[in-house]
Amino acid sequence: MTVTKQEFRHDFAIIASWLPFGAKVLDLGCGDGALLQYLKASLEVRGYGVEKDDANWLAGMSSGINVIQMDLEAGLSGFEDQSFDTVILSQTLQAVHNTEGIVREMLRVGHEVIVTFPNFGYWRNRSQILTGNMPVSKSLPHQWFNTPNVHLCTINDFDQFCKDSNITIKERLVLTDNKPVTFMPNLMGNLAMYRLENTQLK
């Protein structure tokens, strides 16, 4: 087995801390499968990834994870109700068109849902807007004209969305540069991480 040197991902570690050992996990928009690899190695999760992009799909499958090629926008019709312990949407929410539908589908398929996204309310983003430009940063690397992100939101926005949609926030953690942020998270936090469950199902 080859060990590749990888930078420590605090968000991966937090996601792992929200999962039981051996959990059955569905990772939507799994990319090259790095998160699932990490969770397999650390928690022996039984994992499946969903990925639309050919190159990512191939990278994920080659690395030994299960990857189902499909477009999230079409929903999760191939997955039974409550058939996963946890469904994860890691830094993909902002690129999804049918945001509300996807979150509902995740809550249908998983007992729990983990959503992470770049916080648009982060002060560095705000300062770029104040200077008159759309934010471009490490977590939002695209220009306004080529970004895949269509539904950027702030922590406040997502809190409100959960409240309106009757979704319980079990836990919320905010990171900046791999470190937890507790003081004024909507201003100081770069990456928002939510652990959710469906209120109506409880």
Partner: peptide
């Protein structure tokens, strides 16, 4: 093909699925 994949997922089998353009 997705029907086959779904049945395998329902049984928690090891499966990858590619939809080639």
């Amino acid at each position: 093909s997705r029907e086959i994949v779904k049945a395998l997922l329902d049984n928690e089998r090891t499966v990858s699925y590619a939809e080639v353009t």
